[in-house]
Amino acid sequence: MPFLELKNVSKSFGGNPVLKDISLNIEKGEFVAIVGFSGTGKTTLISLIAGLLKPSHGSLMLNDLEITGPGPDRGIVFQNYSLLPWLTVFENILLAVEAVNPNWTPDKRKEHVEKYIAMVNLTPARNKLPSELSGGMRQRVSVARALAMDPQILLLDEPLSALDALTRATLQDEISRIWSQDRKTVVMITNDPDEGILLADRIIPLTAGPGATLGPEITIDLPRPRDRKEINHSARFKEIRRELITFMLNSKSERHTSITKKLILPDIEPEDLDRPPRFFTGRARPKRASEIKEETVEA
């Protein structure tokens, strides 16, 4: 029995299909990466798992229970961090810890929060407001907040996409380290195939939308711990990467050729420039084709 199970999940917004027929099984302790182009519905997919959105069709099960709404058993790192700007780093994480562990003593909560702040190396910034932090630091707070909730599953929505390459590499290592420490089930959305291959056990492409669906998954059988420098030279890495990218590009170009363009002529008639403009009203405005009615009555 899989830990997280998506069965034929579809989602459309007001008749516009975004996700179509998504089926996915994730085992406990697995790290699954989902790669997709921008705007294809990755955030929508994470929101469905988080319970922030309801599927139009299909069902989502966590631990054999239908997902009906959001809950702290699924820690989520939002794409745009979503820290509360009026709370400090410490308070943002404390809010989550309080919500999840209402019975803990204040001391225990505080200690717990400090532990996770230290885990993402933010102790010096613990009393700062989000507006005083860099993008990477905010991202780390967001990760710490999700981890501190000690969720059963961690949902990461492009957690690193807003960062520069160097910070990104550092945080990738950090995520990898944290994951290998307590083996949480992780679903990570990313737009960077390399990142997915470096971190995940399985990587699944999301085809280009609209009506995106999951492509064939690739099991990443590279040994752990993976070193980013070595991995770049590994033949298997290159193979996985080529397979993935080829699939994704194909899914995109298929989309392009399958778009049928219906040519619609402009609804306007040519203007008669020979007619002299009338005094005061000037030249009559051009007529729309739909306005001209055949009104010649046969005598």
């Binding site: 922030l52 959001p70 809950g71 702290p72 939002f78 509360l84 919500a99």
Partner: peptide, 21 residues
């Protein structure tokens, strides 16, 4: 919506949502 989503994911109580968000 992001702030409301945080409150939802944390399942904050009504009072807490009011005063913290």
């Amino acid at each position: 919506q992001d702030y409301l989503n945080v409150a939802k994911v944390l399942k904050l109580s009504r009072t807490k949502t009011l005063f913290k968000v």
